[in-house]
């Protein structure tokens, strides 16, 4: 693979939102991140698993956060899973959610319909490709942590897992404090009625509950390994 291609990826693959990433990730240039991710995915998706992804062949799936802090364009073909430069590509389907929701979806920690019902996850574009992705992922049913450990060793696997966990918890903190502050200010300056502020607070606390659930889901899965963080 020419390195120029991956340099382009480096511009578009925005992983900078990941909170306090391990020094290893922070020092790694973008193209190398893309290359590493591809390599990792090629190890996890053994030929038989890759075969099961083939209904998605040549579809462009874009994963992104609402503010586009994170954007990741992927496609599958017979050889593997590829990270593509975002510029100039029109995705078949965009899977948009906050970092916690995307993490939960990809790690299989939460029911995707539940995330959709509470507006944490949205599919735009070709809905059937999105549904296919969701259902194939649900059916693969492998333990991502075990996979990471097998291919990268325990130390790196734990580090990546911790990063995912931090992503969830930081989004949780930011979301709630920012949202609550916004509502309080809005009410104070008469931008929203007291009634609306109340209902917004309820929404925020619902969101918070959901995030707490995700958090505990992560912890339940790896109680021993994550206790130290």
């Amino acid at each position: 693979m020419p390195s120029g291609w991956h340099n382009e990826v480096a511009d578009t693959l925005k992983l900078k939102v990941l909170p306090q990433p391990d020094i290893f990730l922070r020092l790694m240039p973008g193209f190398a991140q893309a290359q590493t991710l591809e390599l990792l995915l090629s190890r996890i998706f053994t030929p038989d698993r890759l075969e099961r992804l083939q209904p998605l062949a040549d579809k462009r799936l874009l994963f992104c956060t609402p503010g586009r802090e994170l954007e990741l364009l992927m496609c599958v073909d017979g050889r593997g899973i590829h990270i593509l430069p975002i510029r100039g590509e029109v995705p078949d389907v965009t899977i948009r959610g906050d970092l916690a929701a995307l993490t939960a979806l990809c790690l299989g920690l939460e029911d995707s319909d539940t995330l959709f019902f509470c507006r944490r996850l949205l599919l735009t574009g070709d809905t059937s490709t999105g549904l296919l992705f969701k259902n194939i992922l649900a059916n693969l049913d492998f333990d991502l942590h075990d996979e990471l450990e097998q291919h990268l060793g325990k130390r790196v696997a734990d580090m990546l897992w911790r990063t995912a966990e931090q992503a969830v918890s930081v989004v949780e903190r930011l979301d709630q404090s920012l949202a609550s502050t916004g509502v309080a200010l809005g009410e104070r300056f008469g931008l929203v009625s007291a009634e609306r502020a109340q209902s917004l607070e309820t929404e925020i606390s619902k969101m918070h509950e959901m995030q707490a659930k995700l958090q505990s889901g992560l912890e339940r899965r790896r109680p021993g390994r994550l206790a130290s963080t």
Binding site: L122, L123, T124, D126, T127, S128
Partner: peptide
């Protein structure tokens, strides 16, 4: 309501 016919679109903050 097959998925091939479904489109979610954002319009002025509403879905």
């Amino acid at each position: 309501s097959p998925a091939h016919a479904v489109r979610f679109e954002e319009e002025n903050d509403s879905l």
